[in-house]
Amino acid sequence: MFEARLVQSVILKKVLEAIKDLLTEATFECSDCGIQLQAMDNAHVSLVSLNLRSDGFDKYRCDRNLSMGMSVPCMSKILRCASSEDTVTLRAWDNPDTIVFVFESPNRDKISEYEMKLINLDQEHLGIPETLYSCVVKMPSQEFARICRDLSQFGDAMTIACSKEGIKFSAAGDYGTANVKLAQTAETENQEEAVVVEMKEPVKLTFSCRYLNSFVKATPLCAQVQLSMSAEVPLVCEYQIGEIGHIRYYLAPKIDD
């Protein structure tokens, strides 16, 4: 049997919001360690990697490893039926063809059950090589979301340049150009507002704005986002999910034609 309970269903609601732009279906791998998902978008430009550790759940039981193929829009619809204060329990039997979502109100006077059919997916699993990145930037996630939104008005692509001075985002298009520079913040008490650059070598890479604007749908999950970059390899855009895990987005760069 598989059973995973989260007192804060809002976490799972936010996770679905963070993946539903990119994925239409995905296999959730459940094991003793927790729930993992790895899936590419349809165009194979980006990859989403989600990890929810079993010890982050309020109750977790997984008697045998399960691979559950799920429709992301359907799962998203179901999670929209949960109130943010509800507790959520995911439940499936061994060799399941359905998964059940149970939502309980805080005083347990309302219990809702939604059963969703699982789908058979033959998804390709990719090996992500261990990489030491040339630049790792931590910055407020809302600021990153805002920059992605603002710069995407100017062009389809955004260049991210990281140096010891800080991080610079730029876009160019028919209307003109846009540049936003963020300096590394001094030691600050408010870590959520900090911009921290760890740089071994400067990096300059160009990425599709459309994908970045999908990644920033994860903003409600975490006050900070971590961007890891090296020349000519995919960007890693990572959000911590409370004490339970993380979501990482990998985005293939655009290169000169």
Partner: peptide
């Protein structure tokens, strides 16, 4: 002009 690369160029099937 830039062209979009695929994530599969960088990460191989495992």
């Amino acid at each position: 002009n830039t062209k979009q690369t695929s994530i599969m160029t960088f990460f191989k099937k495992s």
